[in-house]
Structures are given as structure tokens and as C-alpha cells.
Simulated scan of single mutants.
Amino acid sequence: MNHRILYPFADFGDAVVVQPEGDTTRNTPDPGRDQDGDRSLITYFELARVMERASRRFSGLLRTELTKLGVDDIGSAQAMVLLVIGEAELSVGELLDRGHYVGSNISYYLKQLADGDYIDRIASQRDKRSARIRLSEKGRQLCTALREAAKSYERALSHGEQDRRNLETAFQTLHRLELVWGNAARYGI
């Protein structure tokens, strides 16, 4: 099967095989094989699409949890900003580095969070235009409630040591991709 027809923008040069050779753990037809017996390939483009969809699903999950908690003055994007801040005291630049926000969006999110008393902005003594951001007590309570809710999802996903190792491996791989892609965007390959 010609994968270029299905994925015209994908680069198959450094593709990864979906299943290892000789994997016989399935009793059902192998979805990794097409009609010609070729293995399906996962490209970086496809990986990025899955990551983006997973991020959207997580945003939906956060919206559901915010609704359960009776929080209707902020959305899932603002809740993610709170979770990124955590126990730290950050500048806006540091917050931009830790999240995946567009600069204009973070200003809007921070204004909403400040208006809702979820964060405290501490003006810099040297430059009044610059500020440090930290969670207020209301923000800390919301983050604690969201982390508690997340524990039930973690229990549903993690059924043993192997699942925890797989999660750690997935995190390390995604973090490495983030670094490589970020450096490639900034400095080229």
C-alpha cells in the first residue's frame, strides 16, 4: 500500500513500525497491517496530531471537572495555567516557557484569573510593567481539587508497575521530542 496517498504531507524517512516483528498477542486481525501486508508507520506528523487530540480531550476533562466543582468563571485553559503555576512564583515569560500559550492569550488568561481572585500579581520593584504571578488561596484550593480528581483517572489508567513505567517512558519521550522540536525550530537541524 502506498502510504503517501493516505498521508501526502508525512515524511516517512524516519518512520517507526507500529508493532514489533513477531507480535502474536492479538487474536484479532492486525490493524497495523494493510491489505498488502505492509506495516503501518507512525510519523512525527501523526504523533503530533495524536498529542494535539489528547490535549483537547484533557481540556474537555478539565471542563467537566470544573463544572462538577461549580467553577464557571474560568475555563479549562485558565485551569491549566493555574496547574502550571503550581507552588511557584513565575514571571509571564517563565509561564510562557512552561505552557503552550500564545502571548496574547496568556495576558487574557491572567486577567481573568486575577479578576476571579485565583492568582496574585506582585509588581516588580524595579519595573512596574513587570510582575510575578503566584496562586492565591482560592487558586491553590482549585488546583488541589483538580489534582484530587485526577487521581481517580490515574488509578483507572495505572494497573501496576508496568503501567507506571510506560507512563514514565511516554513522558520522557514526549519531553525529548519537545526539546528536539523546539531546538530545531529555533536553530535548525
Rank of each mutant, 00 (worst) to 15 (best):
Q162L: 14
G139C: 07
T43I: 01
S91L: 07
S76M: 01
F12D: 03
N27E: 15
L174F: 14
L69M: 07
R165V: 08
H3P: 15
S104H: 10
N166K: 12
E161D: 12
G86I: 14
L174E: 13
T67R: 08
L110R: 04
D23L: 05
P20D: 08
G182R: 14
L142V: 02
L47M: 07
E21L: 14
L177E: 06
V92P: 05
G13T: 11
T144N: 06
E94N: 06
L69I: 02
E65M: 02
R56I: 03
Y101E: 06
R98L: 15
L113G: 07
V16D: 04
Q19N: 05
E178Y: 09
I106E: 09
Q141L: 01
S91F: 02
W181N: 02
L177F: 14
N183Y: 13
D163M: 00
S91N: 03
F12E: 05
V84Q: 12
L61K: 06
S158N: 09
G75F: 02
W181A: 13
A88E: 11
V81R: 10
D73G: 07
E21S: 07
V16E: 11
H159A: 03
Y7E: 03
Q125V: 15
G13K: 05
A88P: 00
T64K: 03
R63V: 07
T67C: 02
L69H: 15
R126E: 15
R155M: 02
L96G: 04
I5A: 08
D72H: 14
T169Q: 09
F58T: 09
S136R: 12
S124C: 07
S40E: 13
I85S: 04
D127P: 00
S91R: 14
E46I: 05
A184T: 13
I5F: 06
G75K: 03
D34Y: 14
D163W: 01
P8E: 05
R56W: 12
R147E: 13
L62V: 13
Y153R: 09
R56V: 05
V17M: 04
T43W: 01
V17P: 00
G60L: 00
S104I: 13
A184K: 11
Y7I: 01
R164D: 06
E94Q: 15
S136G: 10
L135A: 06
F171W: 10
Y118E: 00
S158Q: 07
L146Y: 09
E65F: 04
Q162W: 08
A170E: 00
S124Q: 04
P29E: 01
L6G: 05
F12H: 03
G103Q: 13
I106T: 15
T24A: 13
Y101R: 13
K138C: 02
Y101D: 05
N166V: 10
L66T: 04
R98Q: 12
A184L: 11
T67L: 08
A145E: 08
Y101T: 04
